[in-house]
Design a protein around this nucleic acid. Structure first.
Lengths: 134, 134
DNA sequence: GGCTTATAAAAGTCAACGCTTATATAAGCC
DNA sequence: GGCTTATATAAGCGTTGACTTTTATAAGCC
């Protein structure tokens, strides 16, 4: 699950988004990223390296250009990792369907699923119980 | 897409996995994580805080216990983010199906996903072109 | 061969992160 | 009230990470 590490950085996520439109040269990616994030060419090159080394992209040389492309394996791993949580929102949708179907009012469709016990999860605060600082 | 940041850490991913089985007290999570990673209670507490602050969990107080639960919104965001890449592997599966079904004629039905150019994606190396160090 | 373009690597800096130990808060229990 | 349990916060520290500037490599072109 190494991939999550690499995806923690917004620049790298953006690079992948760019590559999702198809193969791109390092130069093209660099230009786009420089424009958006205002970082140097070496900085982008370093991000490309991380993406390479984490298996998120592949590279292909063509003359002096390097053509980067998305490599899906790690993304599929993440997708698979998410599987264990899918029930949490699918369940919700089902519940919502039911609610809508029987004309119940659409109040508070928020509220988490999940309990191992069949217990209704009660109301929880979505960000701390006591006081939060900063 | 803040969530990717939080998920970059293996301890935090593990915590979410534990919570995917249902609400857990901080204590239960701490015990499990301590056993697996050998880190201190405050360390786990700090990870729980990050998860809370990034919206990946919710907390609910019950006496002196804190009950943590998975909060799905950020995970759904990631799921949605992955959408743009799904074509990359779904297509592969389709291709495989078709190959099997019609005994391999006419390959490249639809070629590399996303290609802005219509060019065949060719064979790329999955990790660098030149030499890699370390 | 020498200049240029495309890209990576090297070396250094500074901030953020994850951990530790020490301490605070707050509920339960005697 | 005072001890204990459950959990969080504070402060300090070493490591990692994302930059920077500088320099190397290598292909194209004259």
């Amino acid at each position: 699950m190494h991939a999550f590490d690499a995806l923690g950085d917004p620049v790298r996520r953006r690079i992948l988004e760019l590559l999702s439109e198809g193969e791109q040269t390092s130069g093209a990616v660099t230009a786009a990223v420089r424009a958006e994030f205002g970082i140097s060419q070496p900085a982008v090159s370093q991000h490309l390296r991380v993406l390479r080394e984490s298996g998120l992209t592949s590279v292909r040389a063509e003359g002096t250009r390097r053509l980067y492309a998305v490599e899906t394996a790690p993304l599929r791993e993440i997708d698979a990792w998410l599987d264990r949580f899918r029930g949490f929102w699918q369940q919700r949708l089902d519940a919502l369907d039911t609610e809508l179907a029987r004309g119940k009012r659409e109040r508070r469709l928020r509220q988490g699923p999940g309990g191992t016990d069949g217990r209704e999860t009660a109301r929880h605060e979505v960000h701390d119980v006591g006081k939060e600082r900063q």
